[in-house]
Amino acid sequence: MIINGIIVFLLYLALVIFATGTAGILRFPDFYSRLHAAGKCDTMAAILALSSIALYHLSENPDLGGVLVALKILLILVFVFISSPTATHAISQAALIIGVEPWGREKK
């Protein structure tokens, strides 16, 4: 029972972070600050949701097949953890090369 509570908590925490990330990408005033919402919130929410799904699968079928699927989900988790900041960095560097100006209320 307590494991179900942990699974639901992790999944819904991930959904809340996904929702605020989406709100951020719609509300922030300029392109670089939208990257903040995308880079951090998406990585964290994906990690939480993936671990929740892996825990659920392990608790449903605790045999060798279940462990293998959980290992594959762990592989996706490591991949997301490495690739998501890299994708953010690639987009921001392309924007800097093209010459997108950061937003500011008062220029100093």
């Binding site: 972070i17 990330g21 709100a23 951020g24 509300r27 919130c41």
Partner: peptide, 19 residues
């Protein structure tokens, strides 16, 4: 992630950030 969440839901967001 919680800091970005706080910034996105706060109505005075444009005063809180100094990019």
């Amino acid at each position: 992630s919680f800091q970005v969440s706080y910034l996105t839901v706060s109505p005075k967001m444009q005063d809180l950030i100094q990019p």
